[in-house]
Write a protein that binds this DNA or RNA. Sequence first.
DNA 1: ATGAAAGCGCTAACAG
DNA 2: CTGTTAGCGCTTTCAT
Lengths: 338, 338
Amino acid sequence: MTMPESGAKPPTSADVARVAGVSRSTVSYVLNSPPGARVSAETRERVLKAVRELGYAPSAPARSLRSGSSDIVLFPLPLQPMGQLLEQFVDEFTEALRRQDLNLLIHGDRYARGVDAARTWAALRPLAVLAESNRLTDGGVEVLRRAGVRAIFAWGREEHPGVPTAIFDNRDSGALAIRHLIGRGHRRMACLVPAGPLAGLANERWEGAKSAAEEAGCFLERVDVGYVREDVLAVVRGWQRQTEPPTAVFAGNDDFALMIISALRECGWSVPDDMAVVGADDLPFCDLVWPRLTSVAMHTRTMGSGAADMVTALMTGRPYKHRDHMVVHPRVVVRESG
Amino acid sequence: MTMPESGAKPPTSADVARVAGVSRSTVSYVLNSPPGARVSAETRERVLKAVRELGYAPSAPARSLRSGSSDIVLFPLPLQPMGQLLEQFVDEFTEALRRQDLNLLIHGDRYARGVDAARTWAALRPLAVLAESNRLTDGGVEVLRRAGVRAIFAWGREEHPGVPTAIFDNRDSGALAIRHLIGRGHRRMACLVPAGPLAGLANERWEGAKSAAEEAGCFLERVDVGYVREDVLAVVRGWQRQTEPPTAVFAGNDDFALMIISALRECGWSVPDDMAVVGADDLPFCDLVWPRLTSVAMHTRTMGSGAADMVTALMTGRPYKHRDHMVVHPRVVVRESG
DNA sequence: ATGAAAGCGCTAACAG
DNA sequence: CTGTTAGCGCTTTCAT
């Protein structure tokens, strides 16, 4: 490989053709091997050698312009902090896409929504877009459709009309956590509702928890609490003053479960004997602390493979049903804390 | 906005021009407002109205093809799990880029490296690429340069020759942790070296820790340990049998710090009195557990703004020095655990 | 098995 | 201020 000339323009397929002593179409045939392409082994070798020599990389923009479709699947970075779940999902999805020669691109803007966001996404002319449902509006979907995006896929709490949606109902998580605790014999429980960036999420989980408790005729206390240790400590102190404090708490998420366990211990209560604790999200540290943390989790894998399935359907030309919705169910990962 | 025709092709600037009753160049002028463009307010309005009506989004591929440069800054998703740090960095960087009308795209493939990776990245014809230094090879950098990528920026442990690099030296982290503990009066210490996906990282931290201990004439025990609770527990049990066990431990990362604190407690030792614990990465939960976790952290913000500065330099045409390296220094976030 | 040529949607230089 | 036009790099007929 020779040195780059500073002002040099990127090599084109024409350059490759010239160096290899063939025509541009031959280069294209070698690089894309379409159904009816027949290139002699020797020619192919010459072309590939030229490619290497020139450090040639075909221009995706030009390709996309010419062919009218791209190999990009666009995933706008979620607003809600996903932590490790994100990397897990991305890994799986990328792998599935790679088998179809597709590229996952995560768009860094986590805030734009509606038509503005759609225009930004549409500009890239992606093959598919997987967006949180609350960032899609009718107008936005319209813009994407118009721009030739072949598959639009939503995910999140609410389904989006006309767009296949993977529904993560956080009420289910709350309900499941409470039912799990009831199954373990608890009758007086508390549900933490954390403030902060995850408040919306937490509130949904509370709703589900509440209805599960009502259904079973159990007592469930709602405890709003800030994202600081002192608040959590105050809550535990409050319980210690009660004559009949709850025997179990659904912490709303794993961070809070960690906090509440810390606080309980500081106050001399043990987990799960004096108080059972259940978190949510099943973050990696659930397995690392002691007592290990029982947690309600969504099947991230379900979403990863579900999304990949959709893209596969799209690629193989199978009909792609716009009305399909998929509900992603939570499950309880039972460990020692509750 | 009217209904999409199913087989319809995406609207083009020509469609907008026709609907607005102007020429294509006028549309382009309105949408890009280049220096010398003069369009009457009324015409501009007509054009924008047509844009809205058609749900038009300009094609980035076509634009990029024509103008020879794009608005894409490409950030290959790091192989090493970054957790929250990633989202923090992305947030900040995206915001800085938005001010320049640039888009951050995160490429989902975390594994490809060298020339193969470079070809994939180069295909998008991005304006800039920010890659982990260990995924860049000379050949890869060459391919990117050839493809007209204006700025190539590396980050990670080692600097990459010829490419400006943000150096995160994990030896520094280890050394800093140990020096902090020495400053607190500890003379016999241990350093956990976790196995698993982060082994490389941990090993570097160990090296730094070791040299800091040697420098100060202190004893530092290297403890290799698996990513499971039992291993950590066994380590603590081992210490309990020693007549002169260490008084402090650098856990290598925050997850391990959490594990070791759990294990210590299970064995009846208290933190930090019987054993001080320092983690690394300053994950959010450091503030949530009790005792709150002292942790060695890198300045993610430094990297975010550093990266943005580089892109700014690039955009404003300031000379862009290919030999610049930036060392990102760790700091100790002191809390109760050690 | 290979080459010639058209055209994807857009911008920018130039002409009016 | 607006319109005409050339061509960016590529794929894909259609001829050879």
